[in-house]
Structures are given as structure tokens and as C-alpha cells.
């Protein structure tokens, strides 16, 4: 048995697998860039309260709309607040809310999708038509309704965003399950008499997990954009908490003579979204899923 050594591959722990995936991701230039941007933003979100040079809510009428200088790196806004401080702090809320939001979206969307794919038939039909019905409602209007009824607290925003962004995951998870369900190993498990729960947990989830995780990562970046839109409209974070969407909204009218107040949050927001997107793509490739050949669901 000469081939033994060549094909030997021990079962790896979850950490070993994860680090292997991350190394594969980083071996691509796009993956490395994406990962670095994402990690930079996450670190920044943790340390920004300690490194912020100014108080983010200190209003000073004498310093209104100052151009960037040595003291105020990114200039000041219409209330004389430091744009740099507000920019590095501005991603924290968005990142936290959307991270937990996409976790919720993944959980309910993924599980419901797998369940529908497995049981099929009438239940699947009914559930999917309900999901379709929700997909046809413009999410932003529905969000505005929820937020104006229940307020803009984190406890409301996370589950609401999680709900609206999970609908798409249901479809992806269901489609991925349908791919697996026809395979003989599922038939074999059924013929042996395993319970539905055991089939979902042992046979299906390991085979659809990758597709769903990648979809979740993509949803994260969309949710970030969605959440910033809410803030932009004034329904996300309430002032004076620094937030990119809110900052863009405030400074947009002054763009023609105080461009600095609007450019910094735009760069922050778009770089984070690009970072997440590139990471998700590299993640997909590292797992062997080629998104370029798949039609968007």
C-alpha cells in the first residue's frame, strides 16, 4: 500500500479546519485584501473608543466646517464635531447590529430552508409561497413601519433586519437541500429508518452548510448597506451616536463646500462592504463553491 502516505488525511479539529480555510482565503490577492479590510474594521470597532482624539459629541460653534488640519485630520462637521473621531466610531453600531442580524437571518433562514427542502410537498409549497409574499414587500417600507411602531432600539433592529434578510437564505438553503436530497446516501438513511432530525443534522447540514454560510456572509454586506440606509433616512441610530449613514445624511447638503464631512463616512462604509464582499467570495472559493457559475437566487 504505497498510496497510504499520500492519501493520509486525519480528521481535523474545527479550529484546524478553520485556520486552513483562512490560509487558503489569504493565498488569493482578493481574499487577502478583503480579509485585511474586514479585520482592520473589526479591530477598529473594538479599539476606537480608546484611540479617539476628540469627544464625538463635543459641539463647538466656533469650529464649524473646518477643513482638514493637523488638529482635525478629517475636518469638522456643521456642529463643529471632529469628523475623524466620528468616522472611526461610526462603524461600531452598524457592525454589531448587522453581525447579529445576519446570524439570526442565517439561523432561521437556513433551518427553515433545509426543513422545506427535506419535507417537500404541501408544507414546502405553503411556506415558500409565504416567503415569496414577503419577498414582494419592499423591505424598507416594512422596516420603517416596524421602527416607527416599536422604536429604533437594538432589540428591535436586530430581529427585524434578521427577519427581512433571512428570506433570501430560505431559498438558497432549500435549493442546496434539494441538490443533496436526491443523493443515495439520504435514501439510504431513510431506508435505515433514521429520524428526520437525524437526517437533517447528520446528512444534510454538513453538505449544505458551506453554501448557506457563504450566502450569510453576502447577506451581511447587504444588511450593512440596508442598515446604513435606515440611518440615512433617520430611522436607524439616533443622534448624537456617530453612525456613517447618519453622518452622510447630515453632511450631504453641505457637500459642495465641505466635502470632507461626507467623504470620510462614505469611505468607511464602502470599504467595509467591499471588504466583506471580497472575504465572502474568497470564503466561497476556499470552500470550493464557485459563485460565478451560479445564478443568483
Amino acid at each position: 500500500m504505497k498510496l497510504d502516505n499520500i492519501y493520509k488525511e486525519e480528521k481535523k479539529s474545527a479550529i484546524a479546519k478553520l485556520s486552513e480555510i483562512i490560509i487558503t482565503m489569504a493565498s488569493r490577492p482578493s481574499g487577502l485584501i478583503g480579509l485585511s479590510i474586514l479585520v482592520f474594521h473589526i479591530i477598529l470597532a473594538f479599539i476606537s473608543p480608546y484611540i479617539a482624539p476628540h469627544d464625538f459629541k463635543a459641539i463647538d460653534p466656533t469650529l464649524m466646517l473646518q477643513a482638514p488640519s493637523a488638529e482635525y485630520w478629517f475636518g469638522t462637521d456643521d456642529l463643529g464635531r471632529d469628523v475623524f473621531t466620528r468616522t472611526i466610531l461610526g462603524g461600531r453600531t452598524a457592525l454589531t447590529i448587522t453581525f447579529f442580524g445576519s446570524l439570526i437571518a442565517l439561523l432561521w433562514g437556513g433551518l427553515l430552508g433545509i426543513f422545506c427542502g427535506l419535507v417537500g410537498g404541501k408544507i414546502d409549497d405553503v411556506v415558500m409561497r409565504i416567503v415569496d409574499a414577503f419577498l414582494s414587500i419592499p423591505w424598507i417600507l416594512a422596516m420603517l413601519l416596524i421602527v416607527s411602531l416599536l422604536g429604533t432600539s437594538t432589540e428591535v433592529l436586530i430581529p427585524a433586519l434578521g427577519f427581512f434578510y433571512g428570506k433570501g437564505i430560505v431559498r438558497v438553503a432549500r435549493a442546496a437541500t434539494h441538490d443533496v436530497i436526491a443523493k443515495d446516501f439520504i435514501v439510504s438513511a431513510k431506508a435505515r429508518g433514521h429520524s428526520n432530525f437525524s437526517i437533517i443534522w447528520n446528512e444534510i447540514i454538513p453538505n449544505v452548510r458551506d453554501a448557506i454560510l457563504v450566502e450569510g456572509a453576502m447577506r451581511w454586506s447587504w444588511m450593512l448597506l440596508g442598515f446604513s440606509s435606515l440611518s440615512f433616512l433617520g430611522f436607524g441610530v439616533s443622534p448624537p451616536t456617530p453612525d456613517w449613514g447618519l453622518m452622510i445624511s447630515n453632511a450631504r447638503g453641505l457637500m459642495s463646500f465641505a466635502y470632507w464631512a461626507v467623504i470620510a463616512p462614505i469611505v468607511g462604509l464602502s470599504s467595509l462592504i467591499i471588504g466583506i464582499n471580497l472575504t465572502a467570495d474568497a470564503f466561497a472559493k476556499a470552500l470550493g463553491i464557485d459563485r460565478s457559475t451560479k445564478a443568483p437566487v
Binding site: 443515495d184 446516501f185 435514501v187 439510504s188 431506508a191 435505515r192 429508518g193 447528520n202 453538505n207
Partner: peptide, 28 residues
């Protein structure tokens, strides 16, 4: 299938045509 008891299921086992499809690729 649902009306058979576990022993009825145990006494009859299946081997499929294509082992690529009948073995879960994510299991050892």
C-alpha cells in the same frame, strides 16, 4: 416506511449503484 418497526428496517439493507452518491462526502 413509517409503519415498519426498526427491526423490519434492519433486516433489509440496500447497496446502491454509485458509491459516490451513496456515501456522505462530509463523513469519515
Amino acid at each position: 416506511l413509517k409503519e415498519r418497526d426498526p427491526n423490519d428496517l434492519r433486516i433489509i439493507q440496500l447497496i446502491f449503484q454509485n458509491p459516490d452518491e451513496s456515501l456522505n462526502p462530509n463523513h469519515t
